[in-house]
Protein backbone atom coordinates (compact mmCIF):
# COMPACT_ATOMS: atom_id res chain seq x y z
CA UNK A 1 0.00 0.00 0.00
CA UNK A 2 2.81 2.40 0.88
CA UNK A 3 6.30 2.34 -0.44
CA UNK A 4 8.80 5.01 0.38
CA UNK A 5 12.26 5.06 -1.05
CA UNK A 6 15.13 7.35 -0.04
CA UNK A 7 12.72 9.83 1.49
CA UNK A 8 14.36 13.06 2.60
CA UNK A 9 13.23 16.06 4.61
CA UNK A 10 15.27 19.03 5.82
CA UNK A 11 14.39 21.88 8.04
CA UNK A 12 16.29 25.02 7.23
CA UNK A 13 16.82 28.06 9.35
CA UNK A 14 19.12 30.97 8.49
CA UNK A 15 22.00 29.36 10.30
CA UNK A 16 21.67 25.64 9.98
CA UNK A 17 19.97 22.84 8.23
CA UNK A 18 18.55 19.94 10.23
CA UNK A 19 17.98 16.61 8.59
CA UNK A 20 14.65 15.20 9.72
CA UNK A 21 14.49 12.25 7.30
CA UNK A 22 17.63 10.87 5.84
CA UNK A 23 17.03 8.66 2.78
CA UNK A 24 14.45 6.62 4.63
CA UNK A 25 12.95 3.63 2.86
CA UNK A 26 10.34 1.07 3.87
CA UNK A 27 7.15 -0.52 2.73
CA UNK A 28 3.79 -1.07 4.43
CA UNK A 29 1.45 -3.67 3.01
CA UNK A 30 -2.29 -3.44 2.94
CA UNK A 31 -3.83 -4.60 6.23
CA UNK A 32 -0.62 -4.21 8.21
CA UNK A 33 -0.37 -2.57 11.63
CA UNK A 34 3.01 -0.89 11.90
CA UNK A 35 4.42 0.94 14.90
CA UNK A 36 7.13 3.55 14.49
CA UNK A 37 9.31 4.19 17.49
CA UNK A 38 12.29 6.27 18.33
CA UNK A 39 13.49 9.07 20.57
CA UNK A 40 12.11 12.62 20.36
CA UNK A 41 13.35 14.43 17.28
CA UNK A 42 14.18 11.28 15.31
CA UNK A 43 11.72 12.24 12.56
CA UNK A 44 8.69 10.10 13.49
CA UNK A 45 6.13 12.87 13.32
CA UNK A 46 7.69 14.32 10.17
CA UNK A 47 7.38 10.92 8.57
CA UNK A 48 3.76 10.61 9.64
CA UNK A 49 2.97 14.07 8.23
CA UNK A 50 4.49 13.13 4.88
CA UNK A 51 2.69 9.79 4.84
CA UNK A 52 -0.52 11.69 5.63
CA UNK A 53 0.24 14.04 2.75
CA UNK A 54 0.15 16.99 5.10
CA UNK A 55 3.72 17.94 4.37
CA UNK A 56 6.14 17.85 1.43
CA UNK A 57 9.31 15.83 1.29
CA UNK A 58 12.56 17.17 -0.10
CA UNK A 59 13.48 14.10 -2.10
CA UNK A 60 12.87 10.43 -2.68
CA UNK A 61 9.80 8.55 -3.75
CA UNK A 62 6.45 7.95 -2.09
CA UNK A 63 4.11 5.49 -3.72
CA UNK A 64 0.60 5.33 -2.30
CA UNK A 65 -1.68 2.61 -3.63
CA UNK A 66 0.58 2.19 -6.64
CA UNK A 67 0.60 5.94 -7.40
CA UNK A 68 3.67 8.18 -7.12
CA UNK A 69 2.38 11.09 -5.05
CA UNK A 70 5.59 12.89 -4.21
CA UNK A 71 5.08 15.69 -6.72
CA UNK A 72 1.34 16.06 -6.28
CA UNK A 73 0.07 19.51 -5.52
CA UNK A 74 -1.92 20.44 -2.43
CA UNK A 75 -5.28 19.95 -4.12
CA UNK A 76 -4.49 16.42 -5.37
CA UNK A 77 -2.98 15.40 -2.06
CA UNK A 78 -5.98 16.79 -0.19
CA UNK A 79 -8.22 14.74 -2.44
CA UNK A 80 -6.34 11.49 -1.80
CA UNK A 81 -6.18 12.32 1.89
CA UNK A 82 -9.85 12.91 2.44
CA UNK A 83 -10.87 9.70 0.70
CA UNK A 84 -8.20 7.35 2.00
CA UNK A 85 -6.61 8.46 5.25
CA UNK A 86 -7.85 8.91 8.79
CA UNK A 87 -5.87 10.64 11.54
CA UNK A 88 -5.70 10.10 15.28
CA UNK A 89 -3.66 12.55 17.36
CA UNK A 90 -2.25 12.52 20.85
CA UNK A 91 -4.15 15.69 21.73
CA UNK A 92 -7.36 14.44 20.02
CA UNK A 93 -7.74 17.68 18.02
CA UNK A 94 -11.48 17.75 18.29
CA UNK A 95 -13.24 21.01 17.46
CA UNK A 96 -14.52 22.52 20.69
CA UNK A 97 -17.43 24.36 19.13
CA UNK A 98 -18.89 21.21 17.56
CA UNK A 99 -20.75 18.39 19.30
CA UNK A 100 -19.52 14.79 19.22
CA UNK A 101 -21.92 14.05 16.38
CA UNK A 102 -20.82 17.10 14.39
CA UNK A 103 -17.13 16.34 14.90
CA UNK A 104 -17.55 12.85 13.56
CA UNK A 105 -19.77 14.02 10.72
CA UNK A 106 -17.23 16.58 9.45
CA UNK A 107 -15.12 14.33 7.14
CA UNK A 108 -18.31 13.07 5.48
CA UNK A 109 -19.39 16.65 4.77
CA UNK A 110 -16.08 17.37 3.10
CA UNK A 111 -16.38 14.37 0.79
CA UNK A 112 -19.92 15.34 -0.11
CA UNK A 113 -21.94 12.53 1.53
CA UNK A 114 -25.67 13.31 1.68
CA UNK A 115 -27.24 14.26 4.99
CA UNK A 116 -29.30 11.14 5.61
CA UNK A 117 -26.42 8.87 4.81
CA UNK A 118 -24.09 10.93 6.98
CA UNK A 119 -26.40 10.48 9.92
CA UNK A 120 -26.55 6.72 9.35
CA UNK A 121 -22.79 6.38 9.11
CA UNK A 122 -22.08 8.58 12.13
CA UNK A 123 -24.58 6.66 14.23
CA UNK A 124 -23.02 3.38 13.17
CA UNK A 125 -19.55 4.45 14.10
CA UNK A 126 -20.64 6.10 17.38
CA UNK A 127 -22.42 2.90 18.27
CA UNK A 128 -19.31 0.92 17.48
CA UNK A 129 -17.17 3.21 19.64
CA UNK A 130 -19.80 3.08 22.39
CA UNK A 131 -20.23 6.80 22.66
CA UNK A 132 -23.65 7.05 21.07
CA UNK A 133 -25.10 8.39 24.32
CA UNK A 134 -22.61 11.24 24.26
CA UNK A 135 -23.37 12.38 20.70
CA UNK A 136 -24.90 15.69 21.76
CA UNK A 137 -22.09 16.61 24.14
CA UNK A 138 -19.25 18.96 23.43
CA UNK A 139 -15.66 17.67 23.63
CA UNK A 140 -14.95 19.57 26.89
CA UNK A 141 -17.74 17.61 28.56
CA UNK A 142 -16.01 14.26 27.90
CA UNK A 143 -13.16 12.43 29.60
CA UNK A 144 -9.85 12.02 27.76
CA UNK A 145 -10.63 8.42 26.81
CA UNK A 146 -14.02 9.38 25.47
CA UNK A 147 -12.51 12.23 23.50
CA UNK A 148 -9.98 9.90 21.91
CA UNK A 149 -12.76 7.48 21.02
CA UNK A 150 -14.56 10.33 19.30
CA UNK A 151 -11.31 11.16 17.47
CA UNK A 152 -11.01 7.52 16.36
CA UNK A 153 -14.64 7.56 15.30
CA UNK A 154 -13.96 10.64 13.24
CA UNK A 155 -10.88 9.01 11.70
CA UNK A 156 -12.78 5.89 10.60
CA UNK A 157 -16.18 7.26 9.70
CA UNK A 158 -15.48 7.38 5.97
CA UNK A 159 -13.82 3.94 5.96
CA UNK A 160 -10.28 5.06 5.23
CA UNK A 161 -7.83 2.50 3.92
CA UNK A 162 -5.14 3.88 6.17
CA UNK A 163 -5.15 5.24 9.70
CA UNK A 164 -2.23 7.33 10.88
CA UNK A 165 -2.07 7.55 14.65
CA UNK A 166 0.35 9.94 16.35
CA UNK A 167 0.83 8.79 19.96
CA UNK A 168 -2.87 7.98 20.32
CA UNK A 169 -2.59 7.05 23.99
CA UNK A 170 -0.11 9.75 25.01
CA UNK A 171 -2.71 11.80 26.84
CA UNK A 172 -4.61 8.89 28.34
CA UNK A 173 -4.32 6.75 31.47
CA UNK A 174 -3.50 3.08 31.00
CA UNK A 175 -7.04 1.79 31.07
CA UNK A 176 -8.31 4.34 28.54
CA UNK A 177 -5.11 3.80 26.55
CA UNK A 178 -5.75 0.10 26.33
CA UNK A 179 -9.29 0.70 25.19
CA UNK A 180 -8.06 2.86 22.34
CA UNK A 181 -5.43 0.29 21.38
CA UNK A 182 -8.13 -2.42 21.35
CA UNK A 183 -10.17 -0.24 19.07
CA UNK A 184 -7.26 0.19 16.65
CA UNK A 185 -6.55 -3.52 16.72
CA UNK A 186 -10.17 -4.26 15.96
CA UNK A 187 -10.11 -1.82 13.03
CA UNK A 188 -6.96 -3.43 11.75
CA UNK A 189 -8.57 -6.83 11.95
CA UNK A 190 -11.37 -5.50 9.79
CA UNK A 191 -8.80 -4.63 7.13
CA UNK A 192 -7.65 -1.08 7.84
CA UNK A 193 -3.95 -0.46 7.52
CA UNK A 194 -2.57 1.34 10.57
CA UNK A 195 0.66 3.22 11.02
CA UNK A 196 1.19 4.38 14.57
CA UNK A 197 3.90 6.55 16.03
CA UNK A 198 4.46 5.80 19.70
CA UNK A 199 6.86 6.03 22.57
CA UNK A 200 5.20 3.20 24.38
CA UNK A 201 6.63 -0.30 24.05
CA UNK A 202 3.35 -1.54 25.47
CA UNK A 203 1.35 -0.01 22.69
CA UNK A 204 3.85 -1.07 20.06
CA UNK A 205 3.18 -4.66 21.00
CA UNK A 206 -0.30 -4.36 19.53
CA UNK A 207 1.29 -3.90 16.08
CA UNK A 208 2.61 -6.48 13.61
CA UNK A 209 5.89 -4.80 13.06
CA UNK A 210 7.99 -2.12 14.74
CA UNK A 211 10.21 0.25 12.78
CA UNK A 212 12.76 1.92 15.04
CA UNK A 213 14.21 5.24 13.90
CA UNK A 214 17.16 7.38 14.86
CA UNK A 215 18.25 10.64 13.28
CA UNK A 216 15.87 10.31 10.40
CA UNK A 217 16.89 6.82 9.49
CA UNK A 218 15.49 3.35 10.03
CA UNK A 219 17.80 1.54 12.41
CA UNK A 220 15.99 -1.67 13.05
CA UNK A 221 12.82 -3.45 12.16
CA UNK A 222 11.21 -6.09 14.39
CA UNK A 223 8.45 -8.28 13.26
CA UNK A 224 6.03 -9.28 16.02
CA UNK A 225 4.18 -11.94 14.09
Amino acid sequence: MIKITDLEKYYKTEELQTIALNKLSFEVKKGEFVAIMGPSGCGKSTLLNILGMLDDSDGGSFIFNGEEVIHYNERKRANIRKHNIGFVFQSFNLIDQLTVFENVELPLIYIGVKKAERKKKVYEVLEKMQIMHRRKHFPQQLSGGQQQRVAVARAVVNNPKLILADEPTGNLDSSNGNEVMDLLTELNKQGTTIIMVTHSEHDAKFSHRIIRMLDGQKVIENSLI
Binding site: K82, I95, Y110
Partner: peptide
Protein backbone atom coordinates in the same frame (compact mmCIF):
# COMPACT_ATOMS: atom_id res chain seq x y z
CA UNK B 1 -6.08 28.51 13.76
CA UNK B 2 -6.00 25.05 15.32
CA UNK B 3 -9.55 24.31 14.27
CA UNK B 4 -8.69 25.32 10.71
CA UNK B 5 -5.72 22.94 10.75
CA UNK B 6 -7.87 20.06 11.99
CA UNK B 7 -10.51 20.72 9.38
CA UNK B 8 -7.93 20.77 6.63
CA UNK B 9 -6.43 17.50 7.81
CA UNK B 10 -9.77 15.78 7.71
CA UNK B 11 -10.51 17.01 4.24
CA UNK B 12 -11.58 20.67 4.13
CA UNK B 13 -10.53 22.49 0.98
CA UNK B 14 -9.35 26.12 0.81
CA UNK B 15 -12.83 27.08 -0.39
CA UNK B 16 -14.39 25.25 2.58
Amino acid sequence: TKEIGVRKIIGASITN
